[in-house]
Design a binder for these strands. Structure first.
Lengths: 348, 348
DNA sequence: TTGAAAGCGGTACCAG
DNA sequence: CTGGTACCGCTTTCAA
């Protein structure tokens, strides 16, 4: 408290050698004590002195040095593509919190690393420099074979990537977006709808989700002859929605799967402003189905029917990652991340 | 392509020594070439051979070893408290993307590290193991003096933390939440409102934002004698909103600052369902002001007046961080992260 | 123009 | 029970 002007730049952080000196023991002893390997090796008295010295000096082990020596790191790297994170919103965030906590409990350090946008290999290269024990992709551009190869060669024990299929050597975390479209399609068809629009967001980076969802609706429709499925391009702006609503008569649709609750809200509003009625009740009304089941789905009028993802408990995924790290070379498999269900309300 | 069964666990990743062997040069030469220090030291021919060897082996430098030797790391650590990330939503995400890109351009690796929820010091300890060049907190529980001290002692050159004030030794990144309340309050007062409710979210972790916003409204009101300001507790559920709407007559309010657009939407819906009219037009209507200016603000009817944050360009913050890292020991100062403005619409 | 060697901080073997 | 010591992968000085 004698230096209110700010931190004097501590010239050099305390090392285990400093702790050893202060405690009057060797570096080896310090290492044993601080890692719980002291049982039967180091006397009680010495242990206490080491701990005290570490405390007084504010000693913090140097992760880099430790993992350099150990030959394996304890970093679990989560690829963070900032541009597509908002897609998940609160869902993703909640998952993340649980995942990080679970892995922390297993002794790993979770690190969210942004990718240099250049290419998957460039990203993989940047990640590989950290020598992570595992790399996960949960969204964004999928890894390609070269990226996976690079990670493996640099010692990454487990590579897990999202999407319908993974490149050779990588495990798949499957949250099958086709299923979202399938459920929405089945629901609308069961409600008697036969001319279904599917919103395709104009926003870049969402195509990876949008296309399979569209495909899912198509798959559902395939079982019903005479059903039409039409993609509708929509940007997340009022102008775009107004344009789509103005063009509506040209499409002659009786239902729409709006990709997501936000797009659904936008489109509903535009259609309502154009004099259309939204709802499941009458064939004259337009049925609208969203996805993600956000709070706003319940607040809109009519209340929005929405496809909801039931995500696997994060602890389970954490255990899976741990297992794969401990048994590298496990044959790649597909692991379901969750399933989709329709939460039916008034809009469709 | 001869091993479709999966990755054979590469026993050991290629090292710079391996590259050296393959290129027929020494490890020193490899280091020079791969770090651009080869000018005038290494012959063209040797350079080419080194680069080819590195490429063929899929060599990736070992970040831990490098920074161990260099004595200084290049990671900029962003504290990620998953529970409060959604508060920022798209705004935060956009900032993050730009920030990460800018710092990457400056040679840093941005790492989002989740904190063990235990305590600030526990979190700081976990962060310090990575020996980051800088640590930033943008949300969540603020750092305390002990945490900052610990980080400095372990060599962190710059510690930046959000909030109204930082513990000694840390720089402050200020996005003054009081200002949001102040602007909302001023706007409502200018519209003739005199009995103002302020939503206080029941969700834990939001109090850090909610309290200063409330204080801001109070500050605005202080200039106008006879103005009443009343906190309203609201959870992000329909039940809670319905309860608040049912109790409405007891409070006798003519305006409400709803903390944020989502709470505003929720409350507006509940008030409307209870037969109230929302709007700026008549004194009989209830004026509602949200915050964050999300897309939904424009889609609600009436359109929602919202307080919007104008965030400083992420590149500027990145430069600031770089500067502070290069000149450790700089006297801590406060840096504005942005300012608030009212986007007036129909609701208030 | 190139190579040998020291050393960053920590761990673990082996000798005492 | 404890200490000396080799080594993890990389950078950089110094000598050849």
């Amino acid at each position: 408290m004698t230096d209110p002007a700010g931190p004097r730049a501590t010239p050099t952080p305390p090392t285990s050698a400093a702790v050893a000196r202060r405690a009057g023991v060797s570096r080896a002893t310090v290492s044993y004590v601080l890692n719980g390997q002291a049982a039967g090796r180091v006397g009680e008295h010495a242990q206490a002195r080491v701990r005290a010295a570490a405390e007084e000096l504010g000693y913090v082990p140097h992760a880099a040095a430790r993992s350099l020596r150990a030959g394996r790191g304890s970093i679990v790297l989560l690829a963070a593509h900032a541009d597509t994170v908002p897609v998940f919103g609160p869902l993703f965030t909640r998952f993340l919190a649980g995942f990080q906590t679970a892995l922390h409990g297993l002794g790993y350090t979770v690190v969210l690393h942004g990718a240099p946008a250049a290419s998957p290999v460039a990203a993989a290269r940047a990640w590989a420099e950290l020598r992570p024990a595992a790399v996960l992709t949960l969204h964004g551009p999928p890894l390609d074979a070269a990226a996976v190869e690079l990670l493996h060669r640099s010692g990454t024990a487990a590579v897990l990537t999202h999407g319908p299929s993974a490149p050779p050597g990588a495990h798949t975390l499957l949250l099958d977006q086709r299923e979202a479209g399938l459920r929405a399609g089945e629901h609308l068809l069961a409600g008697g709808r036969r001319r279904i629009g599917v919103v395709r967001p104009a926003e870049p980076g969402l195509a990876a989700f949008a296309e399979p969802r569209l495909a899912g609706v198509r798959a559902a429709a395939a079982a019903h002859p005479g059903v039409r499925v039409r993609p509708l391009d929509l940007a997340l702006t009022e102008e775009s929605a107004a344009r789509l609503a103005a063009d509506w008569p040209r499409w002659d649709l009786d239902a729409v799967f709006a990709y997501n609750d936000e797009y659904a809200m936008l489109l509903m509003r535009a259609l309502q402003d154009a004099g259309r009625t939204i709802g499941a009740g009458s064939p004259d009304h337009i049925a609208v189905v969203g996805a993600d089941d956000l709070l706003l789905a319940r607040l809109l009028r009519p209340r929005l029917t929405s496809v909801r993802a039931e995500i696997t408990a994060p602890d389970r995924i954490a255990e899976l990652v741990d297992t794969l790290i401990r048994a590298p070379g496990t044959a790649p498999a597909t692991h379901r991340l969750g399933t989709f269900h329709v939460q039916a309300r008034d809009s469709g």
